[in-house]
């Protein structure tokens, strides 16, 4: 760590004969002492609770603070629970359909925004970012009121629509980045070779954009699966999602079963983030 902070380039190379200068003087002008250590602390702070949770989900004992050996019994108990399985299925269905909507909408918008630079395009880009600028609770209750007013009860469909709204900006960002990297000359070449605009999009733009779309889909899936606030406000008795189920479990008290279910949810998120990471690197 210290070695990497030492300025290597610039100035005369240090000779053995030269008097040894203290390390402090060798620190590159853009480096700050202790920032690396601080980074380490913060990473530990960010991961300690999650690691604790996962480790204790394998605890054989009934008590949270007491370690009684490794076992999978809480996972077995969790997965054998019918209502957990139902919640898990609901979560996945909502996430898949919300992502399908979000990715389609975001792809169409990204193509229009990146390839055109008018006022309407800039306004639309602001609109897409708007869900990030409003507290989720406000958006959730607003949506609830709208659905109640037009007599749409709580169903999986309303949940999917509400999720699609806040998933769209997350799907949009990687797609936009990927599209900006695709040279317009590729599309122009295709058109010179008598491609129709539809063919050009399907045969040239879309395949080049695929990694960006996959990355956007992964982010959108994570956002939907991990969402609590919107699902809590909008889901009725029959369409609980996993985070809402965990919430009701927590309110009844801390049990090792929550650890197991939470760890499963964390594992799912991690898998999707990994998917995002690899697909965004490819683009």
């Amino acid at each position: 760590m210290a070695a990497s902070e030492v300025k290597r380039s610039g100035g005369a190379p240090a000779h053995d004969s030269a008097p040894r200068r203290p390390v402090r003087a060798l620190l590159a002008p853009d480096r700050y002492r202790g920032f690396g250590v601080w980074f380490g602390f913060v990473v530990v702070f960010l991961y300690a609770p999650i690691v604790t949770l996962v480790v204790y989900s394998f605890n054989d004992g009934d008590m949270i603070g007491m370690w009684r050996g490794v076992s999978l019994r809480w996972y077995q108990a969790t997965l054998a629970d019918g209502s957990v399985r139902k919640a898990l299925a609901n979560t996945l269905i909502v996430a898949l359909f919300a992502t399908l909507i979000a990715v389609s909408v975001a792809t169409a918008a990204a193509v229009a925004i990146v390839r055109g630079a008018g006022r309407f395009e800039r306004l639309s880009e602001r609109l897409i970012a708007l869900p990030l600028a409003i507290p989720e609770i406000v958006l959730a209750i607003a949506t609830l009121m709208l659905f109640a007013l037009i007599d749409l009860g709580s169903s999986i469909t309303t949940l999917v629509l509400a999720h699609a709204v806040f998933c769209t900006p997350f799907a949009f960002m990687p797609i936009r980045t990927a599209l900006a990297q695709i040279s317009v000359s590729m599309e122009e070449a295709a058109r010179d070779l008598y491609c129709t605009p539809a063919e050009c999009f399907r045969l040239v733009t879309l395949p080049l954009l695929a990694p960006g779309i996959v990355a956007g889909a992964m982010l959108s899936l994570v956002m939907s699966i991990d969402d609590f606030i919107t699902s809590y406000i909008l889901s009725g008795p029959g369409n609980t999602t996993v985070p809402v189920y965990i919430f009701s479990m927590i309110r009844q008290g801390v049990t090792p079963q929550i650890n197991a279910l939470s760890s499963l949810l964390f594992g799912l998120s991690l898998l999707l983030v990994a998917g995002f990471w690899f697909s965004s690197r490819r683009s």
Partner: peptide, 9 residues
């Protein structure tokens, strides 16, 4: 990217 609820719990 982890569930808010899980992190707080």
């Amino acid at each position: 990217w982890t569930d808010l609820l899980v992190r707080i719990y």
